[in-house]
Design a protein around this nucleic acid. Sequence first.
RNA 1: GGGCCGGUAGCUCAGCCUGGAAGAGCACUCGGUUUGCACCCGAGAGGUCCCGGGUUCAAAUCCCGGCCGGUCCA
Length: 918
Amino acid sequence: MGRENIFRVRMFKEKGYSRQVCGSCKANFWGRLQRENCGDTPCTDYYFDEVRLKTPPLSLGEVREKFLKFFKDRGHEVVDPYPVVARWREDLYLTIASIAVFQPHVTKMIVKPPANPLVIAQPCIRLEDLGSVGYTIGRHLTNFIMGGHHAFNYPDEYIYFTDETVELATEFFTKHVGVPEEELSFKESWWEGGGNAGPCFEVSVGGLEVATLVFMMYEVSDGKYVEMPLKIVDTGYGIERITWLTQRTPTAFHAVYGDLVSTYHKIMGIEEPPVKLLQAVFKRAGRWDLRDPAQFESLKKLVSYELGLPEVEVFKYLDGAVLVYNALDHVKTALLMLSDGVVPSNTGEGYLARLVLRKVFRVLSKLGIGADSVLKMFELQAQTWRSLYPRVSDNWNYVQEVVELEYRKFQELVERAPSIVRRYLSRGSPGLSLEDYVELYESHGLPPELVVEASLKLGYRVSVPKEFYSALASKRVKAPIKKAEALPVPREVYERAVKLPAVEKLFHVDPYVREFKARVVDVIGDYVVLDRTAFYPEGGGQKADRGKIVVGGKVYEVLDVQKVGDVVLHKVRPEPRDISPGAEVYGEIDWDVRYSHMRHHTATHILLGVLRKIYGDYIWQAGAEKEVAKGRLDVTHFKLPTLDEVRLIEREVNRVINEARPVTFKTVPKYDAERSYGFKLYQGGVPLEPRIRVIEVMGIDAEACFGTHLRNTAEVGGFKLVNVEKIQDGVVRFEYVAGPQLVEYAHQLEEKISSAEKIVGGELLERLPKFVKELEDLRKTLQRYREFYRNSLTRDILERREVVSENCSVSTVFTELLDEKLFTETLKDYVKEDPTVVVVLISNEVKKARIEVSEGSRASSRVDAVDLVNRIAKIVGGKGGGKRDHAILVVEKLVQRDEVDEIRRVILERVRELCAAS
RNA sequence: GGGCCGGUAGCUCAGCCUGGAAGAGCACUCGGUUUGCACCCGAGAGGUCCCGGGUUCAAAUCCCGGCCGGUCCA
């Protein structure tokens, strides 16, 4: 199919549409009427308010229902929307389009779609337009519902493609939205994203693009387009935009948020602009790019002239309104993300949630809005949207708690700002450089507006450098290409293993199988492949089994077990040189190791279930590991559990164990599992398979899992948390022991206590307070001795003091006890009292000597302590240095009596020389 | 996952660039003064300079590694 021809669909010919060229963007478009331009912004102004619709104004929910019903009536199955957090995708954090729901498993033909054709009203979040929201009066939103009808055409199963897609869209817009057909414009375009590409139509009405019809048919690899075997109809209908179209309000926010627009104005203390002002803006918002500050400025001036309103008024109204629209949009986006269980943090999707929250908090806190009102703003939206997005009301308690916490954290940052800014102001050059602004933002999270504010508080007037945003943008580096995951086995082993047939996994059939018979399929280096095995390969956080295999009477130890696709590799010792394919094998796994893994694994599932029950559905597994000695589970959570909570968790887990609940496993089709259990199935990641293995702990937890589990929770035997810590903002780690390991753990504790008691010679609780008291007494005694020593030293200095002139005196003291800190302190105090003195303190230790020269202020103006030290070094050797009034010399030997005399003589002579000279 | 910033007295921080005697303000204790709202004056106590290693005669300071906190980005 040629790329040109694909746009020549059946309907255009039948109904007499003509292919035209836009006078502005030169793109080709199709329409029944001849027109000057393609009918899409920015080639035209908005005029959809003048288009006569045959339907009454519709709400967002009504448009959504109308859309779903229309396509349902045309043979599409309605598919429930997925979460806005794209947990099923490794390459995306947020659901950015309805097709994302089916990538990559369906688009790569690993799994069939849940229905075909299908229709979905998918809530989406796109944060790349974060900065545009408000200025475009509603064309850009960070959250929106994308209506998509999708048809997946397989080589052997054709559903429908271009002709039907255009006809369906036309019928929907004309008959059900009530758009006169002459007003429809289909612009030819090209869509590319997520590794796929294809031609598309952009459908517009009165300047507003309301849908994109993509015919996905290429895979993009190395910049080349490779035709896919699967041809996908990927459509996106802007449910918000259609709502706007039917309501013809001056902004999309009025159409989508209704009364909330006024309410938000009131809460934020911002006056609502008069309708005629907004209408004047509406008329130009299509062609003008108001995100450009210069254009926004000109528009405001133009509107002020046109309506005869003072410029300041227009500026005040519109700047304020943009803030309100921002708040409406961002609060809803944050609400949707949090309701889907995102925990704000400094990485991943948690960071994106925080980014959105902070952007709106920045404005709210500047307006002086308190936490109560902020919560009110969230609550109003939670009420408005709870029927359209059911998860919003399910998780409201969590949302409330987290919004409050995040707002408090942000206010703390604002409070901290002046002291951080002060640090930057006080270093080096006056004011703040461009680099300072960038660093303040990137390292401390302080946007330039906040920096200016903080500087004002400190009494500095600074202004944001114009280049700030471009400097920031130029620092953005491309994402590093994700490192290919390390292979579990050497490459040559991997490449041969991957071609072998699937191995029968006895550990899945019955996790309690300890011994088995099998045949050798292949031997690759140290690795043996069998046709069936009970050895569990490392995976799903569960470590590999150990044990032995016997071939031809020879025993091989199994050191490691790994899997490559559906093939299990046993690494054995000694080298399996004598083993050849076809040989019979007897295998036996180390049951103690395995059973311990199973206990910790089942305990992990129980713990996760209990945590979700206690805290809420925002608890997600962020990592897990099950070993012989202990289990470990990292979950998303925003605060460290208290001691009481830890005890509660332990009690609840043990209760589940004592209730002896059955643990079952079954392998079911992916979509059935998702329907019955929801997304919480995918705690450990999403398996790219048509059928998935579901482990269910009755009434507590159900997860897609590869691991081996107990039959009954009673077998866990007992559960004790041994460590709970916050490993990262938003992630809490639990470590625990189960079954006999609990006894091991108790033993370790006992041993620790008893060895400590051996050291203190008695009971810990009795002896320790005595030790502490004794230590205190000793400290006091030592202090008294040092005081004594210090006095005696001071006396020695005084006694040895020889006056050289009115400005200089010398005292050389020799001692055989070393207490560096005491010396330094004593000398410092002494020379403060006597500014004329030069003190030389010589002290011997076991193998080295330390000579310290200290001078009073008047003495040091004539005599350089460093010079004296160098002279001393000539007598005793060693190296040293220091400042003019204080220098130190260390020698790796003891100083002899005669050397002390020599030093005394030399120093006196030198000081006399210098002081007399002045 | 990557980058950047920080960790010094109970708190807020200076000192680090350029290695050489551990500092300020607030809080605390004592004495005086005052008895109207951040009182004032004087004295004192308080330190694992995050941890480990290296360089050096000498490290809070320089280098390497780690831990913790903050923050930006993917």
